[in-house]
Nucleic acid binder design. Structure first.
Lengths: 205, 205
DNA sequence: CCTTTCTCTGACCATTTTTTCAGGGGATCG
DNA sequence: CGATCCCCTGAAAAAATGGTCAGAGAAAGG
C-alpha cells in the first residue's frame, strides 16, 4: 500500500482529530484545516479507502474509521516498552529439530489484539477443549455483533445467558457448536452475538 | 445528578454503540433502537446534557460525548494507550450459565508473567497438544536451569537441539514427556534446562 | 511532445441529521 | 382537582454533511 504525501498527512490529521474530539472530522473540517476544497478531500479519502487505509460508509456523517495507522509502531513503543519480550526463535514441540537461534523482540501489542473494542473473558468449563481452550484460560474477545461461519463467538441466548461456542448459520436457525464431543450443539433461532474470540492467554501456575 | 430510567438506558446505549461503531449514533439510530420517535430522543439528550452526563454541540452530527459513565467507577481517558483490558466477567464454555456482568480491568502485565528472565518461543508441532498448546502458539518461558517434576521445560539435548516437554527426574536419567500419545518420551542422561513454561499466548487468525 | 498521476476547483444536488413547533397521555402528589 | 413530571407524537424547517460533475494546472516520466 503506497500512500502519497498528502494522503499520509490526511491520515495523520484524522487520527489527531479523533484523539482530540472523539469523533471523526467532516469533509469540511478536513478541508478547512488543509485550506483546500471539500471535493479535494473527498477524492483523497476515496483513494485512501481504495488503498485500505480507512473505511467510510456512504453518506455517513463523521464516520471515517482508520484501519491502518502508518505511525503506530513508534507510538505504541512508549507505553509498552516494559512489555517487550525477546523472541528467541522457534521450538519444535514434536521431535527436537530446531535450535534456538534467531533473535528479535516482540511487543505484546503486536502479539495481542488490543483496542477499544477488545476485552477479556475468563473461560469456565471445558466445552472448547478441542480448540485447546481450557478451563481458566482468558480469551481475548473483539466486540462484534456479526460473525462468520466457524468463528468462535460470545453469544447471548434467549434466556440471557452467555456462552462461548463456534458459530454456524443454518437454514432458519443458528448452530452453536462446542468443540467437545461430550456436549451437544445448541440450536437457536435468535442469537445476539457479543464478540468474536481473537486470542487466548493462559497462565501456567 | 439523578437520571431517570430511560435516560440511563440511553446513556448505556450510547456507550455500547460507540464501542461497536467507533462513532456516536444519530438521533434516528437511537430512536429506532428504542422504537420511539426522534424527537423523544432529542428531549432525552437535552436533559442528559443539562444534567451533565453528556455533551453535544449544536447541529453537530454524531457528536454526542459521554462525560459521565454511570457504570464505570472512575477511569476516563486513562487506559487508552496502556495495555489494559476490561475483564467483563466469566463465561461458561460448558453449558451457558453465567451472564456477562462484572466489570474490572486487568493489565497484561498482571496476566502475563513478565520480567528480565522471560522470553517467548513460538511452538512448532503438536507434541504438547494434550496440554492444549498447539502449533503456532507462543509460550512464555522463564529462564531457569532447574525444574521440578512435571513442569514444562525448554530443554537442550546432547545434540544441541531444543525441545519443549514435561520434565521428570528418574533414577539416573531424565524423562522428557510429550503430551501427545503419538510421541514417545525421550530419555537422556544429560540435559540442559533453559527455562520453564509459565504462560501461553495464542492469536486466532 | 504526450500521457499519466496528483492535486485542486466551483457549482450543484442528495441525503442525513439536528432542531423547532404544537401538541397528547399517563402517573404522582399535595 | 391542578400542578408537575415523564414519556411520547407527526410534521416541517434548518443545518450539516456527503456526493457528483465537468473541468484545470503542475509535475514526472517515457
Amino acid at each position: 500500500m503506497f500512500l502519497t504525501k498528502k494522503q499520509l498527512e490526511i491520515l495523520r490529521f484524522l487520527r489527531s482529530f479523533r484523539n482530540e474530539h472523539a469523533v471523526s472530522p467532516t469533509l469540511d473540517e478536513i478541508a478547512e484545516s488543509f485550506s483546500v476544497s471539500r471535493v479535494t478531500i473527498f477524492e483523497h479519502l476515496k483513494k485512501l479507502e481504495e488503498k485500505g487505509a480507512i473505511r467510510k460508509r456512504k453518506a455517513y456523517a463523521r464516520g471515517i474509521e482508520i484501519l491502518h495507522d502508518p505511525d503506530l509502531p513508534e507510538e505504541r513503543g512508549k507505553s509498552v516498552e516494559t512489555l517487550e519480550f525477546p523472541v528467541l526463535g522457534r521450538i519444535r514441540a514434536g521431535s527436537p529439530l530446531e535450535a534456538i537461534e534467531d533473535r528479535e523482540t516482540i511487543t505484546l501489542s503486536e502479539l495481542i489484539p488490543h483496542g477499544q473494542n477488545n476485552y477479556l473473558l475468563r473461560v469456565v468449563g471445558d466445552s472448547m477443549i478441542e480448540d485447546h481452550i481450557q478451563d481458566g484460560d482468558f480469551v481475548i474477545v473483539e466486540k462484534r455483533s456479526v460473525a462468520n461461519n466457524g468463528e468462535m463467538v460470545v453469544g447471548i441466548l434467549e434466556d440471557n445467558e452467555a456462552t462461548l461456542k463456534r458459530f454456524f448459520r443454518e437454514k432458519g436457525r443458528f448452530r452453536l457448536q462446542p468443540s467437545n464431543p461430550n456436549y451437544p450443539p445448541i440450536y437457536t433461532k435468535t442469537l445476539e452475538i457479543r464478540g468474536v474470540v481473537v486470542g487466548v492467554i493462559r497462565q501456567i501456575r
